[in-house]
Structures are given as structure tokens and as C-alpha cells.
Design a protein around this nucleic acid. Structure first.
Lengths: 339, 339
DNA sequence: CTGTTAGCGCCTTCAA
DNA sequence: TTGAAGGCGCTAACAG
């Protein structure tokens, strides 16, 4: 039977539609007997409230908009798993918006998200800059829709609830380890496009380099592995002899770099020590083994959703800027050791 | 200014709300002059139609439900990229439902999807069996909501529009190649959980093995790399000496198998030749290089969305069962060749 | 070409 | 504890 409405249920249970609505939304306000009768009918008819009508009347959607840069990035995908599990706890649905390369018309898209009546927005796009931050703030204020930044941040302000790790510190630590290993020519492999998260990693790297009185080398390349492989090859031709340490802002970049080096006959980690960022599946599957920063990405997703839920419910958020701990995973040995 | 409604626009443009609605939904029915006036006001006020009201009145949501097993599987993530680009063309939104391990209450979840008034459903869960197929069919018939299976299929029936590749043929071809290489002890590495897609791969494998008069070896393991690594190690202890060819149903399984072998001192591909499935990033980043079946996964996503759109629009779908071509990518050389 | 008028299905006071 | 009634913002006939 197609689409029972609240009227059908009311009629069959011999009550008014108001009572049906109550047994669903305020059960305690309905006499147990009638409540059960209504529930029985609901089950019999397979009734599910029409989400539109409900949303229109209640002004709530139990839906959150999730804005992501590119699904195929492992960190994004894993975060989504965390988000979805947490969202399910609150019976929230996820409306996805994939930015891909059309980041130009983000304002338009954000308005669209708002128009779709989401109760809140999870912003997973790490390519954040001042302009976007301002835009997000405007959206949050203007439309009164809470926004949470997950695995990204805007360090110059903290009006938006944020959850991430300390990228600066992580990069700083990685670089320090390379220094401690005695590496002298340490490169940072980062993305061509500039944005906050990677800028922070860069700063952390630069600080450690400076403290060690070494020369900084920042190589900006594409996030696309088919492109950066070429970059890396070029790099080799010119000065590979001198590179002996690398911090890459993403595991996938680290892995394709390692591959390029190995193809040129370099030994990893003997000749070149490489660190990645995120501990994605790429990192654990890569050979030679890749050391990396372990980011609790699933937790970040879950916590982000939990924080957003709090905001939606109007609960006070004591700490707006939430930093989760990271750790560094060493997978240096070339012997066939356990992982 | 928060939330302009159609009334505000109508008032400001000095027309009735019907005219505003028309300029948005049937522009050709409005005199150009008034149309432009209305559009100007719309822009000024930053008006966006409330999706709920629109949906309630029009019975359409321009939203499709997307049901996925696990976001972190590269094939799923990449398909979503394809879907989202295509969906954007039609201004469709994506409502995501991640199954994860709670596949038990799929009926409940599907009803939920329907209640959320999606115009159609994209089903990306490849772990399909008869029970689920029946359920999906019921949903499509009962609620008149079109469903498209993407990168999965149910081979015993074809009531649901489907788009995928020929898994049977692909596995058959891979196995034949191993045979042609002269491999004698060819294993199939598949998932512990049984489901259609992998069953078909298994059949293809078995057919080729049988034709070559070899002995079949099917190893069922977990899709989780941290678990299957252990499996593989055990396997080695007992009979690794005899394995010289492998077809894995997923790239990630293939890669973790290769890693296990290499750690035990085996040479790939000299001692053991390994093929994967999907040509994900894992495959291209893996070393030793992994040969694999290239599945046009982004296309599958886009086509699936396109087909669903057709169904939603009531256009006839001539071909319900759509098979896209696959190809086999050989990455056998151990020399440092170009990819 | 434009305005008027019913709903769409549900929630939420307000009374009873 | 329950029912009646008025919207929520928009679309879609139907008139004009």
C-alpha cells in the first residue's frame, strides 16, 4: 500500500491526527493505552511521516549538510564513516555536497545547502582561506545554522566550532625526528594550492628546520598522483642526490614520492627518510613502509557530528576549538618486521 | 536578512506569488519584463525557495538517496565523485546512507529513505543477495521510487536498472592470463562474506581453472586489511611454496597479499603473479606493481545517476542491464619502467 | 500573461 | 488526555 498519511492512521486508530502526532513526538503526553493502539496501527500501515510536511511544520529537518572537497581522498571518506555512525545515533540524515573543482561558486552552493533546510553544516573542506571563513561565518550568523569545521581550521579566529589536530605541532615533530636522524637536506612536499591546514604544516616544518639551522626546501606539487609523479622525477634529475629527508602533507603524496625515489635506485629509509600525514590505508599498505602521523580521523568525524548536534540543540559549547591528540607511527625498518 | 519567502519577493516585485513561482519554474510563461524584475528582487533578497514547502507542494524533492556499504572503500568513494558531478547537472542533491555493519535492519532503513521523499535511489552496496533484491524490488513497486544498482547486480533477474561490468568475464580473463603465464597453483582471494559480485568473479575464476585442468583454490578472507594480513601469513606457513598465481577480488586485498609474500621473501611477479580488481589508487601506488582490472568506476557512477534521472523523468529505459567495458592493466615489469 | 485559491502532510497552540 | 484549527512556504489548476 502506497504512502499512508497521518490521517489514515488517525482514522484507523479512531483518534485525531493530533494524537498520532503526539504519540510520535511527545509520547508521554498520550495515555498509554491509546498510545499503544496508535503505534500498532502505525506499524500495520507501515506509516512513516512525510519528511517534507514534518520539516515544513516543525522547521527542523534532522538533516545535516556535509560539505566535502573530494570523496576519493581517503581522509574524507574515513571521516564520513565516523560521521555517519554518530549521525545515526541521533537519527540524522546526511545531505552531501561535493565541491570537486568548482570551488568557485561556493557561496551559491552554501545558500543552496541552507535552502535545503539543513539543521547544521559539517564542513570538511580543508582548503579553507580567509574568504571562505568569512563566508561561513556569515552563513552561520545570517541563517542561524550552526557550522562545525572538521579536520580543518582557521587559526586566526574562533567563531566557528572546530575539531582537528595540531598540524603545526605534528609537522614540527616529524621534522625534528628527521633532524634527530641526522638528515641534512629535508624537504617539505606540499600542495600547490595554498590553504590553512597545509600552511600550518609548513610553519611547523620551517620552525624545526630553522631551529636545526638547516636550509628549508618547500616543494609544491599537485595532489593528483599522476601529476606529482612527474614532478618528483624532475626533482630527482636535478638534485636528488641531496635529498635525504621528506615530510609530505598527505600519505598519497608521500607514497608516490617514495615510488619515484625507489625507481631511481634510492633506498628508503636508508638514503631518504619519508614521513606522511594521516595514516590512511595507503600508508599501511605502502612498501617500503611509510612512517606517518596518525590522525584519529574517524573520531574527528564522530566528534564533529556530536558537537554539531549539541549546537543544534542549543546546548552551550564550552570549548569551540577542539584539538585531538595525534601520534607518530614509525615504520622505518626495512627488515620484514611486524607492522 | 534571514529567510526571505516567496511572499516577500512577490510583494517587493509587485506581483503575486504565483508569478514568482512561475519565473522560477516556468520562466517562458512569464513576460520577459516582469520576469527580470522578479529575478532582480530575488537576487536582492537572496531568496531561495524553501525545499520543504516546494517538495510538499510538488511531490518532488530533486534529491536522490544513495546507499553505500562503507565510505572508505576506494571504489565507493570514486563512484560518488562520478555521481555527484552528474547529479549537479540536474541540480539533484544526494542523501547519503551508510550501511556499515548494521546491514541487518536494511528494510527499516530503506523505508526511512523512502519517507525522506527521495525521487530515486542509487544502490551501491555490492553485497547483494536474493533477500535484498526482493526487498529492493518491493520498495520500487510499492512506493514507485526508481532504483538503480551501480557497480553491483543481481544476475537472476533484471527488474532493477543495473549498471556494472562483466565481473565473470573479467575474472575469467585474469585467470586465463595467469594460466598463459604458465602458473600452476592459482588462488582466488575473495571475501568471507558471500555475495553476488564476488560470486561471479569466483565463477569466472573456476571456469578458467577448469578449462586449464588445474586445481581450484578459493581462499576466503576478510576485507579488512589488518585481519587478512594474518590470514595470508598463515597461508604462507603451510603452502606458500606452491602458490604462483593469485586473483584477488579487490585491490586492497591484492596489495596486502603481495606485502605478505614479499615479507616472506617471495618475488612478485617472478615467484607469484598477482592480479587485483578495480584499479583504485591503491593499485597504482602499490609496489611491487599490481596488475588489475580497470573498472570505469567514475563513469559507472555518472551513468547510474543519468539512468536514474531518466527513470525519474519517466523516460523509457530500453536497456535495463547495462554492462560497461573493462580492461586489464598489466603492470608486471619489475624494471623501473614508466607506469 | 497574471492573480486567486486550494491543498501538500504535519506540528502546535488553544480549548475542551 | 484529547480534538479543532491555523499555519509552514510553495505549486498547480483555474479563472480572468
Amino acid at each position: 500500500m502506497n504512502k499512508a498519511t497521518i490521517y489514515n492512521v488517525a482514522y484507523a486508530a479512531n483518534v485525531s491526527l493530533a494524537t498520532v502526532s503526539r504519540t510520535l513526538n511527545n509520547p508521554q503526553k498520550v495515555k498509554p493505552e491509546t498510545r499503544e493502539r496508535v503505534l500498532r496501527v502505525i506499524k500495520e500501515l507501515g506509516y512513516k511521516p512525510n519528511a517534507f510536511a514534518k520539516g515544513l511544520a516543525s522547521k527542523k529537518s534532522t538533516t545535516v549538510g556535509v560539505i566535502v572537497p573530494d570523496m576519493s581522498r581517503a581522509s574524507v571518506a574515513e571521516m564520513l564513516n565516523g560521521i555517519s555512525v554518530e549521525a545515526r545515533k541521533y537519527s540524522y540524515s546526511l545531505l552531501m555536497y561535493v565541491l570537486m573543482d568548482e570551488k568557485a561558486n561556493e557561496p551559491e552552493m552554501l545558500r543552496e545547502v541552507v535552502a535545503s533546510q539543513v539543521d547544521g553544516i559539517l564542513y570538511l573542506n580543508d582548503e579553507i582561506n580567509e574568504e571562505q571563513y568569512t563566508l561561513l561565518n556569515m552563513i552561520q550568523d545570517e541563517y542561524k545554522v550552526p557550522i562545525v569545521l572538521a579536520n580543518t581550521l582557521y587559526p586566526y579566529d574562533n567563531k566557528l566550532v572546530t575539531i582537528c589536530i595540531d598540524y603545526f605541532k605534528a609537522a614540527y615533530e616529524l621534522t625534528q625526528r628527521l633532524v634527530a636522524e641526522g638528515r641534512k637536506h629535508i624537504y617539505l612536499l606540499t600542495t600547490a594550492r595554498k590553504y590553512m591546514v597545509n600552511d600550518l604544516k609548513e610553519e611547523g616544518y620551517l620552525k624545526a628546520i630553522k631551529e636545526a639551522k638547516l636550509e628549508p626546501h618547500v616543494l609544491r606539487t599537485s595532489g593528483d598522483i599522476s601529476i606529482n609523479t612527474v614532478h618528483f622525477s624532475d626533482l630527482i634529475q636535478n638534485q636528488s642526490a641531496k635529498i635525504d629527508g621528506v615530510v609530505a602533507v598527505r600519505d598519497s603524496i608521500a607514497v608516490s614520492f617514495i615510488n619515484s625515489m625507489v625507481e631511481k635506485g634510492k633506498r628508503v629509509p636508508e638514503d631518504i627518510s619519508v614521513y606522511g600525514f594521516q595514516n590512511t590505508k595507503y600508508a599501511s599498505l605502502a612498501r617500503p613502509k611509510l612512517s606517518t602521523v596518525d590522525i584519529p580521523i574517524i573520531d574527528i568525524g564522530a566528534k564533529a557530528m556530536a558537537l554539531l548536534k549539541k549546537e543544534i540543540d542549543g546546548e552551550p559549547i564550552e570549548i569551540k576549538f577542539n584539538v585531538l591528540p595525534h601520534s607518530i607511527i614509525e615504520r622505518k625498518t626495512t627488515k620484514y618486521d611486524k607492522e
